[in-house]
Computed example of a mutant assay.
Amino acid sequence: MNHSELDELLKIQTSAEDYIIKSISSSDKKTLTNKEIMSILHPVLRWDEEDGTPVLSGESILPSDENISISKHHRFIPIPSHQHDFIELFYVYSGSCTQIINEKKVTLNQGDMCILDTNVTHSIEATSENDIIINCLMRKDYFDTSLLSRLSSNDLISNFLVHAIYQSKDYNNFIIFHPGQRQKLHGLVKDLMCEYFDPSVCSKEIINCYVILIFSELLQIYQDQTPEVQILDQTTNTKNISKILEYIQKNYITATLATTAETFNFHPNYLSTLLKKTTGKSFKEVIHEQKLKKACTLLKNTDMTVEDISLEVGYNNFSFFYKKFKDAFGVTPLEYKQTK
């Protein structure tokens, strides 16, 4: 399947859309209950209800042998407020759409993307013929293990992004990206859909690779353009945090709270608060995390002794390194090295 064939496929009205157009008047659409809407869209969407809020289950939506499901959002009918237990990547292929996410009205235009964490409450207003929206659903355990470990095991920026999605206390659990004219990203999304709708040999691995590339592009957009990030408090200095994390990533062995704060013209107390608010970790915890991830890379990919690796990543006290490593990963450095 090429991009032109994909475009034709996405423009075709589904049987549910045909029914909506031919059998439901505009006034009736506004009075439909959740269950009535579900009966129209079934089996694409199935849910249970808790306290009146529909909760979509990945077990009922995602095929049992797949970690990712891609589908076209049904047009011409509003989707009521709901939650789900999987990660959703929402892409506007053409036109636009308006959602209410965590009680905030958000309009996405062609090319925009939105990542929704689990348990985010959102609804979608009815879309028209030219509004083609793509839903990419991912099991959270796949997002945790397969995607993140391959995306960037040593990148504090990607860790910050992921933590932002997962954090439930101080964040709203969704991120919006406005890629603009980044044709590489739009091309990758189209390639992903072509492979999914018309699978080739080794299709699952190809799809995994496309997802990795798409998230890598989103990380670039995050760093280069500081997109509309709905996870942060309006007073947070979002433009500085990625630069600070980059600095820590490059200078984790020698960086201190005082020297880092001085580099960015902050008071140390302010920097400490900023890091805690945006990453959920203290400065020391961020430093230790980076040191231990570097240690993991060396343990997996070199013949260096554990003692040498401890010194290489900035731990002069081997016993302290041993304890921090086991606390973080549940195994000793030597046990970790032996399983590589």
Rank of each mutant, 00 (worst) to 15 (best):
K323D: 13
V313I: 12
N172F: 07
F283P: 02
S15I: 13
S272D: 10
I70M: 02
S25A: 06
V162R: 01
I40T: 05
N316L: 12
T297Q: 10
L32M: 03
T53G: 02
N251W: 06
K239V: 08
P43G: 03
K190F: 09
S57M: 02
P268F: 13
Q99C: 08
K281S: 01
R75W: 15
K324D: 11
V211D: 01
L219H: 09
H186V: 12
M193S: 12
L219D: 07
L116R: 14
E125S: 10
E307K: 13
V331S: 15
S71N: 06
K169R: 14
L274I: 04
Y315I: 13
S128W: 10
K324S: 14
H178P: 04
D233V: 13
C97T: 10
N240C: 03
N251Q: 09
S94L: 06
E262L: 10
S146W: 01
C296N: 05
P80S: 10
Q13H: 13
S282R: 08
K29D: 03
Q290S: 04
H73K: 07
V286W: 01
H186E: 11
Q223M: 14
S319Q: 12
Q223L: 10
D48I: 15
S23N: 14
Y210W: 04
S60Y: 11
D18Q: 15
V189Q: 01
